[in-house]
Amino acid sequence: MRSFFRNWWRTLVVVALLVAAIQVFVRPSTALERAEPVRAAGVVLFRPFYSAADFLRGGLSGVWNRYIALVGVSRENERLRKEVTELRERLHATRDAVLENRRLKELLSYSQTVERRTLGARVVGHDVSPWFRAIFLGTGSEAGIESGMSVVTPYGAVGRIHKVHSGLSEVLLVTDGRFAADVMVERSRVRAIAEGVGGNFCRLKYVSPAQDVAVGDRIVFSGFDGSMPKGVLLGTVVSVDRPKESLFQKVNVQCAVNFQDVEDVMVILSRPTVPFRAVTD
């Protein structure tokens, strides 16, 4: 028996470590939070690298935006002037509708579900592992970032804060397989669960064949599950498949944000309120 253990103890350690890894993968343990200073020390080691990367990227994009990209700016200026005039006219036309909307909202005591106190943050790196989709931000717990907060850009949703360190936070992208949130089709108000499928895509789950979803539809977060703010754009439907034998449609959504190119994001510091989850004493 002793010789067996002497010969095979490494294999037994491998098995024990794998079991422990699977356990923390499936059910994260709070006991491991005591080891957090070790990881914090590791993050401090990487800081010069990602700060330098951030500085260089900022400098390069500054040179590009201020000098090289100015070629043809007068033509663009002319086009923008025309666009502004058109938009002013359209704004004038919709002002009445906005006022009416405001009155109706007040009438229904509609509460704002998202209090958008945001914080700008720079993307300093990407998770390069093949299994997970995440980006790293150069701002961390010192700025008030907490895990679970939503991360967006003016073009659409990016993801959710996953881990936070001092000076560094990790964002789980909406395309990661572990991401899921309640969404709705902007046009038909059909609700579904969006789940990341890698690449730049998500899929919609639990859309019955009777429900109205079409290619080109915009998908926005409903805000009902409290994980993402209401109305933020997820992306556009690129394919709808209605298999005869299946209970649900297969809907693929291309995300509005290209995660490879994103440089700056906004972290929504206040979590969305969830009306139906509110506990009353």
Partner: peptide, 9 residues
């Protein structure tokens, strides 16, 4: 640190 897996896995 550099992989977005659940903590310590």
């Amino acid at each position: 640190i550099t992989t977005s897996a659940p903590s310590w896995s």
